[in-house]
């Protein structure tokens, strides 16, 4: 564990908790993409299957359980909670997220390190995580006016990605044989998707204005 990875995990954790807290306390999921949340639930469910097969640390297992629990709770709130579900922007959140799942699955079947069930699903989760934010970014563009919490959620997620890249550079320099092309390329693609959002986020922050994305 290095400081970059810890900072990445903590911003990731904060992003999910900000979202869950927003939904739980103000009973609203306005501006939140259910499609993205469902994709994250699939990402965690397919990546963390190794909970049953390998043990790394208490920290690792605990965080996995938190991410699984929080992502499925958010999906549950948005789909089934009687007040929250009414605030969901159903008409705006129209991204065909299944069109992301299938190509990622095909890619994982073609490009992986080992052709085993767990390994292919693990690789699939990396590919899917890289693009899972897309429905949320599209929804932000459509609704344009973004409340602070949704903005902070995406900002924290982007921060998590940034810290993970620093973590990989650090590990590459300090650990022998630390080369993981699939993880790195998927992670880099994911981080680049945030670049546009970050640009407008900092603009609004600099000008002390409410965040608005161009149509």
């Amino acid at each position: 564990m290095n400081i970059f990875r810890l900072a990445g995990d903590m911003t990731h954790l904060a992003s999910v908790l900000v979202l869950l807290l927003k939904i739980h306390t103000i009973k609203s999921c306005a501006g939140v993409s259910l499609k993205t949340q469902e994709l994250y639930a699939i990402v965690f469910a397919t990546r963390y299957l190794d909970i049953f097969t390998s043990f790394y640390s208490i920290y690792n297992t605990l965080m996995k359980l938190i991410f699984l629990g929080s992502s499925f709770s958010i999906v549950w709130y948005m789909r089934y909670h009687k007040t929250v579900r009414r605030t969901y922007d159903r008409e705006q959140d129209t991204f065909r997220h299944w069109f992301l799942v299938l190509p990622c699955l095909l890619l994982a079947l073609l490009i992986h390190e080992k052709f085993t069930f767990l390994e292919v699903l693990w690789t699939f989760s990396l590919y899917l995580e890289a693009v899972a934010i897309l429905p949320q970014l599209v929804l932000l563009q459509r609704t344009r006016n973004i409340d602070n919490l949704t903005g902070q959620y995406v900002f924290l997620l982007g921060g998590y990605r940034g810290f993970y890249i620093l973590n990989w550079i650090y590990r590459y320099l300090t650990e022998p044989h630390f080369v993981h092309w699939i993880t790195w390329i998927a992670g880099l693609v994911q981080t680049l998707l945030y670049a546009d959002f970050f640009y407008y986020y900092f603009q609004s922050w600099k000008n002390n204005k409410k965040l608005q994305l161009p149509a």
Partner: peptide
């Protein structure tokens, strides 16, 4: 070397 050292990441 452990060739699956990324698996200890989240």
């Amino acid at each position: 070397p452990n060739d699956h050292s990324t698996k200890d990441e989240l």
